[in-house]
Every structure is written in C-alpha cells, then in structure tokens.
Computed example of a mutant assay.
Amino acid sequence: MTTDVTDTGLGTIRAGILGGGFMARVHRTAARDAGGELRAVATRSASGSRHAADELGAGRAETDVAALLDAADIDVVHICTPNATHADLALRALDAGKHVICEKPLATNAEDAKRLVDLAARRGRVAAVPFVYRYHPMVREARARIAQGDLGVLLTLDCSYLQDWMLLPTDDDWRVRSATGGASRAFADIGSHLCDLIEFVIGERIRSLSARTRRVFDERAGQTVDTEDIVAILVETESGALGTLLISQMAAGRKNALTLELHGSLQSLRFEQERPEELWVGMRQESRVLLRDPATAAPDSARLQRVPAGHAMGYQDAFNGFIADVYAAIGGSRPTGLPTFEDGYRSAVLTEAVLASAATGGRWTEVAA
C-alpha cells in the first residue's frame, strides 16, 4: 500500500539527532520539511552538543548520548556519527524504544547489521537507512519502466560512482582509517549507494562478483591509510545480466557522479545523479531524453514530484522524500521503496563479498542471499 508521504497519523514527529556535521544538517532540513520537530541534539561532548544545537536550531542540547536516548519526548533518533559507532548507537536507540534512522553503513560487518535487523523487528520499530538516491523521481520512473517490461530482457549494466574529494595526498578524513570508518571506504561509502540503486531499479540482486581494489596513497596528511580509494567490480545478476561497476574517490572533476546505464533487449536507460531531472532512453531506431514531469510520470515517480516540471529538484529534495516516508511509516503507513535496516544489512553483505573477492585477487565470489 502506498500512502501520502506527509501522513504520519501521529501528529508531529519529535526527533533527536546524534552528530552535528554535514549529514546532521541534511537530516534536520528534511525532518522539518516532513513536519517534524527537532527536540534535541547530542555529540561527543557537552560543548559540541551546545554548538550543534545552536547550528541546527534544536530545542535543546543534551549532555550526552544516553540523555538523548532516554528522553521521553523523542520518537525517532537520527544517527549521523562516524561509521564505527553506528551499530552500537542503533542498538541502544532500539532498546530505548525509539524509531531509528541510521546513516550508512548500518554496521561495519554483516553480523552486527543482521542483529540490528532482528532487533528492530522484535521491537516493532521503524528502522531506516538513507539510500536516498532511490528518491529521485527519475529513478522511480526508470524502475517503473523496467517493471512493466519496456527494457525487455536485461543484458548488461555499465554503472559507476565517481568523486574527487580524496584526489590529493593532503586530502584526509576520518573515513580513511578502518578504526573509525570500517574495513572498506570507497565501496562502503559510495559503492553501497550504487549497488543499492542498481538492485532497487532492476528488481533483482547481484548474484556474484569479481572485485579489485586500489589504495593510491599509504599515507594522507602524514597519517597511515588502510582503506581503499578505488574499486572495480564485475557483476552477474540473478537473471544472468553482466555488468561493470567503477567506484572511485579519486576521479578528478567528478563531484558526485553516480551513473546507471542499463541495456536491455528492447531499450537502454541511463540515469545520472548530477543530472537528476533527466532519463536517457536508448533504442535502435532513436534515442531521446525524458524530462521530469509529474503530469506524465509513473505514479511512484509522480508522488515524489513536489514542484511542476521545469522547477529543478535535487539531492535535498530526495532526502526530504526519504524522511517523509520514514515519518509516514512511523505513523503506520507503508510507503513504497522505503530503504530499511534490511537494505543496510544487504549492503554489509555486499561489502564483505567485495573485500573477500579483492583479497583473492579478484576471484569470483557468490553473494549471500
């Protein structure tokens, strides 16, 4: 059942945010757009919490994580902290009876991610992971067209996610060290988005893969690096389609170039996240660019289009649609395509398969169901 994304059924959703960086600001904006109220923020320190609360416009700054999780006036906890803290914080939030939105990766290993899936089910809580590229309307349009058979039989995939923010040896971030970011960086950080989007759009899973990774610099800003910069993957889907995936955080000039190109026996489709208003449709006789238009879109695409054709929608709009769906689910609705902890677990399984294959020099590896 698909319901209006703004219908929570519970009135105002009261939110708490753990963390105070860029993603916390994105979550804050989306929560307010969905009609939520940001009651509290907590970071690693009381002073950091006060600063974040001022920056985010929260009702109050909690002294620590425990105080926020124990607060009776918070319905949902947004976890926007470094990767290695996600599993423990999500577990504590669920144990406190909160609904949870946890930034990816849900956990730095599949075992912990599965434990969170099971706990959320036992607690009866809404538990979601922001695979927000699902919420671009033209992604939903591509998905609908594939589901109705426009593509024909899926033959091949040519997909990539390219960034350049780690291009220089002076570029550094907590994500480059496994102690804080997990064993994988490039794949867990952005390859996870790419694979989630592929499986969501084509309606089937990656069955097996062969992966190679590369670490260009062993040190960044004078500190040791133990995670990968680049990943190249060959994949085979459940139906036998073959594909290539390139993931890099060192592609000069590419800021957030997530691209899906899918080739079928009748048509091809191409979506580029940096051009989210468009969907390229390729045929043997002709090719055309389909522009976003709620008047002609598939229903699941149209429901996410809050402005008329010609008024550009982008990343924050996609995030807003995701949070609105989470809040609707808290109210008892069942929005189509909501990424849950199950999807976060799937991402962890894929990450482990990629690392396992790369450790053998690229041996084909079956991906667990």
Score class of each variant (00 low, 15 high):
Thr85Gln: 15
Phe131Leu: 12
His136Phe: 14
Ala87Asp: 04
Ala120Asn: 10
Pro130Asn: 08
Arg125Trp: 09
Asp172Trp: 12
Pro130Phe: 01
His136Met: 07
Lys104Phe: 06
Ala96Leu: 08
Asp173Lys: 00
Thr85Trp: 13
Phe131Gln: 11
Gln148Val: 08
Pro137Leu: 02
Pro137Cys: 02
Leu157Gln: 13
Phe131Met: 14
Arg140Tyr: 01
Leu119Cys: 00
His86Gly: 02
Glu141Lys: 03
Leu94Lys: 13
Gly152Arg: 12
Ala107Lys: 09
Arg122Thr: 10
Met138Val: 07
Asn83Arg: 13
Arg115Thr: 12
Val132Ser: 01
Arg92Glu: 08
Arg123Ile: 05
Ala113Trp: 05
Gly97Lys: 09
Ala147Val: 08
Asp118Ile: 06
Leu151Glu: 05
His99Trp: 01
Ala96Cys: 08
Ala87Met: 01
Ala87Pro: 03
Ala120Phe: 03
Cys159Gly: 10
Val153Cys: 02
Gln148Asp: 15
Cys102Tyr: 02
His99Arg: 10
Leu119Met: 02
Ser160Asn: 14
Ile146Asn: 03
Gly124Ile: 05
Arg140Ala: 11
Gly152Tyr: 04
Cys102Ser: 15
Val153Lys: 11
Ala128Cys: 08
Arg92Pro: 02
Lys104Met: 07
Ala144His: 12
Pro130His: 08
Asp112Gly: 07
Pro137Gln: 02
Lys104Ser: 06
Ala120Ile: 06
Lys104Glu: 06
Val132Cys: 01
Arg122Tyr: 00
Arg92Lys: 08
Asp118His: 09
Met138Ser: 11
Ala120Trp: 01
Met138Ala: 09
Phe131Ala: 10
Glu141Cys: 05
Arg143Met: 06
Ala113Met: 09
Asn83Phe: 05
Leu154Arg: 07
Asn83His: 12
His99Cys: 06
Val153His: 05
Leu89Gln: 10
Gln163His: 11
Arg122Val: 02
Ala121Thr: 10
Gly97Ile: 09
Arg140Pro: 03
Ile146Leu: 07
Arg175Lys: 14
Asp172Asn: 14
Asp171Phe: 01
Leu162Cys: 10
Ala128Gln: 06
Leu162Gln: 14
Thr156Ala: 14
Asn83Asp: 00
Leu157Asp: 11
Asp112Tyr: 04
Leu151Met: 07
Thr170Tyr: 07
Ala84Ser: 14
Leu167Trp: 13
Cys102Phe: 00
His136Leu: 08
Val139Glu: 05
Lys114Val: 10
Trp165Asp: 15
Pro169Asn: 11
